[in-house]
């Protein structure tokens, strides 16, 4: 098995240790060294029948997942999971298709369309790039004038990732949201993320605390994971008067702040699932791969 990454973060180091403990050591491949002809095995990638894709880059993960799927190699996560989770529009559609309670979201193709969507959603609202993470370029917009400005700037300066703005109502949640961790379709742990800033990404400094996984949270989290294709995902949720609502699903989850916080060995559970599940299910002889 191979772990593809862009430098080794705390998560990758925890995973390396977990797999080592299970006598299934991972070989490391730096995605910056990988490339080559799409008709053959990727240069810079050791032969393997299971590949854990943990590049920091969404596009590198998606390209490698598709490339390896073409070669008959199992990836964690699967290509469609990475594609769906990496694109908030696709995530929302997948959640709707599966009947999972999801935060409302609208899209627009022009600033004028965005203005109409904003009026329909009401203010304040949140504007996000469809592809992106860590709270980057996520903006809370308090009125129509500000929305017009944001959308015009996106149109003029944003490039392809900002071509279709993704708008959501702003949830006043007292500076906290939830993140649950699903491994192999089972919700194994959850944290509450709290911040004095309205964005509660731990990448932006939000603090994490353990949150008990009750039946409702497990049910919604596991349904969200199934909706995007299953595997190893983290589900971001809001606590609302109507129950848990899914905001986003992350396909290359970060968990460094959640292992000690929850007391749950998340990397160990991932390793167990890969070694006994995805690994066994791969069924591909690496020597037979081109």
């Amino acid at each position: 098995m191979v772990l593809v990454c862009t430098g080794i973060r705390a998560e990758e180091k925890l995973l390396l240790g977990a797999f080592e403990k299970r006598d299934a050591p991972l070989r490391i491949a730096d995605d910056r060294e990988i490339g080559g002809n799409l008709g053959s095995w990727p240069e810079g990638l050791p032969r393997a029948d299971v590949v854990l894709l943990r590049s920091k880059s969404h596009w590198r993960n998606v390209v490698l997942a598709r490339w390896l799927a073409h070669l008959g190699v199992r990836t964690v996560n699967a290509p469609e999971v990475l594609e769906t989770c990496g694109d908030k529009i696709r995530t929302t559609l997948a959640l709707h298709a599966a009947g999972v309670p999801a935060a409302p979201a609208s899209v627009a193709f022009t600033p004028q369309g965005g203005a109409r969507a904003g009026e329909a959603l009401g203010f304040p609202l949140v504007v996000k790039p469809a592809i992106g993470s860590w709270g980057r370029l996520v903006g809370r917009v308090n009125d129509a004038d500000a929305l017009e400005t944001v959308l015009e700037h996106k149109e003029a300066l944003g490039g392809a990732p900002h071509a279709v703005p993704y708008l959501q109502p702003y949830y006043e949640l007292g500076g906290r949201d939830l993140r649950s961790f699903v491994v192999g379709d089972r919700c194994v742990a959850a944290i509450a993320r709290s911040s004095t800033h309205w964005r509660t990404n731990t990448a932006l400094g939000a603090s994490a605390s353990a949150f008990e996984v009750d039946d409702a949270l497990a049910s919604v989290s596991e349904a969200a994971a199934r909706a995007v294709g299953g595997g190893v995902v983290a589900v971001d949720l809001f606590e609302t008067d109507d129950g848990y609502v899914v905001n986003e699903v992350n396909g290359t989850m970060e968990f460094r702040n959640s292992v000690d916080t929850t007391g749950v060995d998340i990397p160990g559970l991932v390793a167990d699932w890969v070694v006994t599940g995805a690994g066994r299910a791969a069924g591909v002889d690496s020597e037979a791969a081109p």
Partner: peptide
């Protein structure tokens, strides 16, 4: 910072800046 080499001597480089599609 990123560890780029352990030998013949330890070498650290500044890690790449986050790109637009980076994240989880």
């Amino acid at each position: 910072l990123e560890v780029r080499a352990l030998s013949p001597e330890l070498r650290l480089d500044e890690a790449p800046m986050a790109a637009e599609d980076w994240g989880e």
